[in-house]
């Protein structure tokens, strides 16, 4: 399946450079520009939650309505999601979670698909 934003090189490089610049500015913000002034504690507290605030939302639609099945909910993919999350929470280890999720997905697709 061709991906339009990758096939169109102008779009692709806009994304690479835009994302790179935005991310660099976030990294440079205090070290480079703002110096020793700090952010209000409530803002710092919110920023700490960005990984769990963005990533589950990014994954949820793909987990519930996967494009590969035409948007139809797929039990094998849902089970893989649940296993990945539980193993990740339990072991606190990304690699184990990843392996458990991939194996579950493979088995699920083979058994149910």
């Amino acid at each position: 399946m061709p991906v339009e934003a990758i096939a169109d090189k102008g779009q692709l490089w806009t994304i690479i450079l835009g994302l790179g610049l935005g991310t660099y500015l976030l990294r440079f913000s205090f070290l480079g520009l703002i110096g020793n002034r700090s952010l209000p504690p409530v803002v710092l507290r919110m920023l700490r939650y960005t990984p769990m605030a963005v990533i589950p939302g990014l994954v949820a639609p793909a987990a519930v309505w996967p494009a590969a099945t035409g948007g139809e909910t797929d039990p094998a993919r849902l089970i893989a999601v649940v296993v990945t999350v539980l193993v990740g929470i339990r072991t606190r280890n990304t690699l184990w979670a990843m392996v458990a999720g991939a194996v579950t997905l493979g088995l699920g697709l083979w058994a149910l698909g």
Binding site: I55, V59, A63, A80, G88
Partner: peptide, 14 residues
Amino acid sequence: DFIVPVSFLAMVSP
């Protein structure tokens, strides 16, 4: 297609 969601969840769930 589903490796990205699984990797993401593996990164965030710990």
